[in-house]
């Protein structure tokens, strides 16, 4: 077994993996920020009384939830340009995929959390003369937001791991870079282990941060 695996030699490939890490983080952070905004908008769309807003929001959520991320990525990168005649660069496509995908799941988290706040809270606010918007903002939303944190953290971790699928649309993220190196230098065990460790480092750091936030906000 001596000498079969070259763990020290992996250091030579750290710059390539570093590039991958950079794109993984870039796409995750930007994609999730946009996804959070989309989720907020469409989450409230799913509670809206207006049938058109409700219908459009539901359509979006159902389409995204009903199709695999991989299919979404390939469709946006390879099929969409044929329709629009606009060639997107792969990083941009990757961000769009993560944003659209996480947005739909976050919309459901927002909807569920807002609806989980007892009706009596809204009624108590309205009976004091607050408008619907004020009661939402000062009473329902702060409570719903607290409840959103744990499932939101869960979704962040899922989306970060989903970025690895973007290697099929040629995004130079961690998985893509790992495959590149491994196929050129035949050091699959070392490289893919490193890749896995990098993902684990990201998700564990996020879990750690989330736990601190939850403790700060006193979420049971």
């Amino acid at each position: 077994m001596e000498g079969r695996f070259d763990w020290v030699g992996v250091i030579d490939f750290l710059p390539q993996l570093g590039t991958g890490l950079y794109y993984t983080l870039l796409i995750s952070v930007v994609g999730l920020i946009i996804g959070f905004i989309l989720g907020g908008i469409f989450g409230f769309g799913r509670i809206a009384k207006n049938k058109v807003i409700y219908g459009l929001s539901s359509l979006y959520v159902e389409i995204i939830r009903g199709t695999p991320v991989l299919v979404q990525a390939i469709w946006i990168f390879f099929a969409l340009p044929l329709i629009t005649n606009y060639n997107m660069d792969s990083v941009m496509a990757g961000i769009i995929v993560i944003a659209l995908n996480s947005g739909a799941y976050i919309a459901e988290i927002v909807r569920g959390s807002v609806q989980s706040i007892a009706k009596g809270q809204m009624e108590a606010g309205r009976s004091l003369g607050l408008s619907h918007g004020q009661a939402m903002r000062y009473i329902v939303w702060p409570q719903a937001f607290k409840r959103m944190i744990p499932p939101l953290g869960n979704q962040f971790i899922i989306s970060i791991k989903d970025t690895s699928l973007l290697s099929v649309i040629l995004v130079p993220e961690l998985m893509f870079q790992g495959r590149l190196v491994a196929s050129n230098y035949f050091n699959a065990v070392e490289i893919y282990t490193m890749v896995a460790v990098f993902y684990l480092a990201i998700t564990l750091s996020l879990s750690f941060i989330l736990r601190i936030v939850e403790r700060r906000l006193d979420i049971k």
């Binding site: 007892a118 009596g120 809270q121 009624e123 108590a124 606010g125 009976s127 004091l128 009473i139 702060p142 409570q143 607290k146």
Partner: peptide, 12 residues
Amino acid sequence: GMVFQQFNLFPH
């Protein structure tokens, strides 16, 4: 003013 059976205070 309205007072409810379940109080409905704002817990946060």
